[in-house]
Design a binder for these strands. Structure first.
Length: 959
RNA sequence: GCCGGGUUGGCGGAAUAGGCAUACGCGAAUGUCUCAAACACAUUUGUCCGAAAGGGCGUGCGGGUUCGAGUCCCGCACCCGGCACCA
């Protein structure tokens, strides 16, 4: 103790202060670690021990999970732990209501930032990542989060990524059987080929194919496959990216570099085979509708038809289009191929046909020149430019004509970049009268339009008079009769069905479903990721490593930095850091047919890989024989009542993962389920998106952020070093100079105060601004709580062994009831408010009865566990409050003895009556009409009607 | 452009199921304690009129349903998020 005691310290030497909080918190954090307080028992395996391990079968379980953090070098700011605190409160509440609760936290530690940081500072990514993890573990421990530390995983741990690689091998060694609607081992497909049940592409028997040919055939089926395909190449990052990692502006999500299309040999996951199931199974999940919708939109299912248009000059060639409006086939007056479409070379004639319109040729002498020029121009265009020019349609005539299969009409074939190679078949039939894009193109190129859907908005049926196309699903089809089929008079849906059937009968089309979703590009030209468990033999055939060779550890290399290029130089190609280690790349292995020379795959997996399945490893983190013990997985995640697909009971994280991580994880889950490795077919049953904690950003006249803590407010304006600065709400972060760390708040008030503040700020799913000033409110609450149980002068427990009075009992049971419901439904902000109300009530009671104090402490425990443990111990309990039973409300005290009934006159409150809650309507009406204030307000006016809602309301309507 | 979410005091927010608008907290004002300040504690705090009693007005804007609307319906404005030439 120092010499200079403040007056308050002298007057109240045992007040709850930051120093006392720090002492309490450190002690209990040590206690929890020593006693394994948060260890949840498994039904079998090495983790059957754990607090409350007995009677596993009788107790409900709860698997509560956060999206695990990426260990950034900047450490945590107060925004990061919001979700962690929420799940912790939720987990603690469920422990106290008798659940076996699994709650832990790992680290998603492979990925670009660690590597970029490592390159900048010259440290190995493992070293910087481990240091970051250690720092974050320290910061998180300070918050008193009740994690089962035995179960924490790190994706960079070889013991962990052994199983990431193992899962990759499972996916590589399977195919999707559309009949069974599930993934099956690739052997079952080979068996079909061998037995001749399934024909090879060229019809030869399976055993007549060479090993290379067989590998090629199987590659068309494997769920993980390498292929040459146009991919997103980002020279600035030196790697290729998944579609999901490219922004709408055609730039990289990380780093914001330009992204180009380049044809490269890359690994992919056949996620498209699961498109339907990924949509269907959303129905059984308890997810925010907004997120489900985003996933549905991303997968983008659309029903339509494929239709073949024979090329007029080349009887064998046909252009297959995908359309959702096959009912408008009679209105198709031209066709468009994507510029890259492979049919283009084949159909282009030597010369322009007789009478070719001038605007169609682009001013070139021959179709070949025109097409080549347009292709070049289109390829050079970035996605940004392409979108900016979306309204100005460009294109060029190929010189070829195709035959409309229903009208027999010859329609010109164009190429134009408004048709995308990656969607549908890369070719469309253009119906300018009923599609706005085709309409714009037809206007620009003076192409004919035919109205085949009767306009229902009063316009004429002559498209030449229109400003835009007409689109309706309720309208009737017109002008659509021809060779063998007539659609006139049918509404759109009926016309679709009829024409689809007709096309199918003729073998020139069929009803089909198309998806926006593409296969998932799975390889990266990076060092800091999981190596692929794949080697290539001398013929270039890929082989998966057997389980006995896993994990395939990430080798040391001289230079782990990616080869990056001028961000704008599209004519570059990636170089993998792993390829620089020749000793590692070239290996002699025995994969079952004797030692042979192989070459390793030198790409690494994307950073999503490790997060696609980590929930499973939490369950059985040390199992070296299996990914997860089936009995353990069944116990924690198996399907059950109301959770048809099984999964984690609660998963909390940010909205930014709506499609990426959540879609990938669902896909892996389904494959593992199909192959019989897990009982659950969805990883996360309930998903909750927490909002962001925002912070004010102050900028000076040069728009540069200034340190937020040094800004002063005067008369509604803000000043930094005398200069006025602007204020906007933004993200919290180091670069914006507005980050507040949990460490500083813990130092000033303690972790319990921080926890309460974050929970009290507002509903968990809403974003709101951080306000350091307001934190003190929760500090005061804890001081009041402390004072309600402990004397500030003696430090002794001050509760009395007396019966609580009626009002206190009602306040207590109301709080118990309110907190029970609020915590169960994750309404943490109102839970804190109710705890505050109870505390405020007890502050007014001179002496707090022991029984009430004990309940108060139990109610506090999920939210502020340290102070609750300390008070629980001081009240004489030997065991931790963590597993103490949460109080149960007595309904007799939840309801008020007297209810305030409002008496309204035409909806305006005129009087209040204190009445018993059981009062009858008749009695209440009598009382209300007799009330002097009501009589006075009513005056001479008669009564037309009286609405009585006993016991809360009477509304009188005067005549 | 399309889809989704939102708009309540000076601020964060509360309001089962259409029934007392503003719980709880911050801030502010006043007071107690203190030589003083800070802390803590107590009281007040939507707004307008009024000395008060009391009254008027109030949940983004305009309309509607209803005895009664922050809540339901129609139209509009603004803000935030997602998707975006997807055939």
């Amino acid at each position: 103790m120092s010499e200079t005691h403040t007056a308050a310290e002298v007057a109240a030497p045992h007040r709850y202060t930051a120093a006392l909080a720090a002492d309490i918190e450190a002690r209990w954090q040590d206690f929890w670690d020593e006693h394994g307080t948060y260890e949840a028992p498994n039904p079998t395996g090495d983790l059957t021990e754990g607090e409350g391990g007995a009677g596993l079968a009788q107790r409900p379980k709860k698997f509560v999970m956060d999206m695990f953090p990426y260990p950034s070098g900047a450490g945590l700011h107060v925004g990061h732990p919001l979700g962690f605190i929420a799940t912790d409160v939720y987990a603690r509440f469920h422990r106290m209501t008798g659940h076996n609760v699994l709650h832990t936290l790992g680290f998603d530690a492979f990925g670009l930032p660690a590597e970029q940081y490592a390159v900048q500072t010259g440290t190995h990514p493992r070293a910087s990542t481990e240091a970051n993890i250690a720092n974050m573990r320290r910061q998180l421990r300070r918050l008193g989060l009740g994690h089962d530390k035995r179960r924490s995983v790190e994706t960079i741990d070889p013991a962990y990524y052994k199983w990431t690689q193992w899962i990759f091998v499972q996916i590589f060694n399977s195919w999707y059987d559309p009949e069974a609607r599930k993934a099956r081992p690739i052997d079952t497909l080979v068996a079909q080929f061998e037995a001749g049940e399934r024909a090879t592409p060229d019809g030869r028997p399976w055993n007549a194919l060479s090993a290379v040919e067989r590998a090629g055939v199987l590659g068309e089926y494997r769920l993980a496959y390498a292929s040459d395909a146009p991919v997103n190449w980002c020279p600035g990052l030196g790697t290729v990216l998944a579609n999901e990692e490219v922004t709408a502006e055609g730039r990289s999500e990380r780093g914001n570099y330009p992204v180009f299309k380049a044809k490269l040999r890359q690994w992919n996951m056949r996620i498209t085979t699961y498109a339907d199931r990924l949509i269907e199974d959303l129905d059984g999940l308890d997810w925010p509708e907004a997120i489900k919708l985003q996933q549905r939109n991303w997968i983008g299912r659309s029903e339509g038809a494929r239709v073949d248009f024979p090329v007029a000059a080349d009887g064998d060639a046909k252009i297959t289009v995908f359309t959702t409006r096959q009912d408008t086939l009679f209105g198709a007056t031209y066709m468009v191929l994507a510029p890259e479409h492979e049919l283009v070379e084949r159909i282009v004639p030597a010369a322009w046909p007789e009478g070719t319109h001038d605007v169609w040729t682009g001013g070139y002498a021959t179709p070949t020149e025109a097409v080549a020029a347009y292709r070049k121009q289109a390829a050079a265009k970035s996605d940004v430019e392409r979108q900016a020019e979306a309204k100005d349609k460009t294109g060029v005539f190929t010189g070829a004509y195709a035959t409309n299969p229903v009208s027999g009409e010859q329609v010109p074939v164009f190429i134009a970049d408004y048709v995308l190679m990656g969607y549908g078949t890369g070719a469309i039939m253009a119906v300018p009268a009923h599609d706005s894009r085709d309409f714009a193109f037809a206007r620009a190129f003076e192409l004919p339009m035919r109205c085949v859907v009767e306009p229902s908005d009063g316009r004429s049926s002559d498209p030449s008079t229109w400003d835009d196309s007409f689109d309706s699903y309720e309208a009737k089809i017109i002008n659509s009769s021809g060779a063998g089929v007539a659609l006139d008079g049918l509404v759109v849906t009926d016309a679709k069905a009829k024409i689809t059937e007709w096309l199918a009968k003729r073998g020139i089309g069929e009803g089909t479903v198309n998806f926006r979703l593409r296969d998932w590009l799975f390889s990266r030209q990076r060092y800091w990721g999981e190596p692929f468990p794949i080697v290539y033999d001398e013929d270039g055939v890929a082989h998966a490593l057997p389980e006995s060779m896993l994990p395939l550890e990430l080798p040391e290399v001289e230079d782990y930095s990616p080869r990056t290029f001028d961000p704008d130089d599209a004519d570059t190609s990636p170089e993998t850091p792993l390829s620089r280690n020749e000793d590692w790349v070239n290996v002699k292995l025995d994969l079952g047919d004797g030692p042979k020379q192989y070459r390793r795959e030198t790409n690494t997996m994307p950073n999503w890989a490790g997060s696609c399945w980590y929930e499973l490893r939490y369950l059985d983190p040390h199992n070296s024989d299996r990914l997860v013990d089936p009995a353990v997985e069944q116990y924690w995640m198996g399907p059950r009542e109301g959770q048809p697909s099984g999964g984690v009971d609660l998963y909390v994280g940010g909205q930014e993962h709506a499609v990426l991580h959540l879609l990938y994880a669902r896909f892996w889950s389904k494959v593992l389920h199909d192959l019989g490795h897990i009982a659950s077919s969805e990883p996360f049953h309930k998903l909750f998106n927490q909002g962001m904690i925002q912070a004010y950003v102050y900028r000076d006249s040069r728009r540069i952020a200034v340190p937020a803590t040094e800004v002063e407010e005067r008369d509604g304006a803000y000043y930094y070093q005398g200069q006025q600065v602007s204020r906007v709400l933004g993200k919290m972060g180091k670069s914006l100079k507005n980050a507040v760390t949990p460490d500083e708040i813990c130092a000033e008030y303690g972790a319990d105060t921080l926890r309460l503040y974050e929970m009290a700020m507002g509903p968990l799913d809403v974003s709101r601004p951080w306000d350091t000033r307001a934190v003190i409110g929760q500090y005061r609450l804890l001081q009041r709580l402390w004072r309600n149980v402990v004397s500030e002068t003696t430090g002794e427990v001050s509760v009395v062994d007396a019966e609580p009075d009626e009002a206190t009992l009602r306040a207590l049971h109301k709080a118990i009831d309110g907190l029970s419901q609020d915590l169960a439904h994750m309404r943490f902000n109102t839970a804190v408010a109710k705890l505050t109300e109870l505390n405020n009530h007890l502050t007014k009671v001179r002496e707090v009865p022991r029984t009430v104090a004990e309940s108060l402490v139990l109610l506090t425990a999920p939210l502020a566990p340290h102070i609750a443990e300390e008070l629980w111990r001081m009240l004489g309990h030997e065991t931790s409050v963590v597993h103490a039973p949460f109080p149960v409300a007595d309904p007799a005290y939840v309801q008020d003895e007297a209810v305030t009934c409002v008496v309204q006159l035409k909806g305006k409150v005129k009087a209040r009556l204190e009445v018993p809650p059981t009062i009858s309507d008749e009695e209440l009406e009598r009382l209300a009409l007799a009330d002097p204030a009501v009589v006075a307000a009513l005056g001479d006016a008669g009564i037309r009607k009286v609405i009585v809602r006993a016991p809360k309301l009477v509304n009188i309507v005067p005549a």
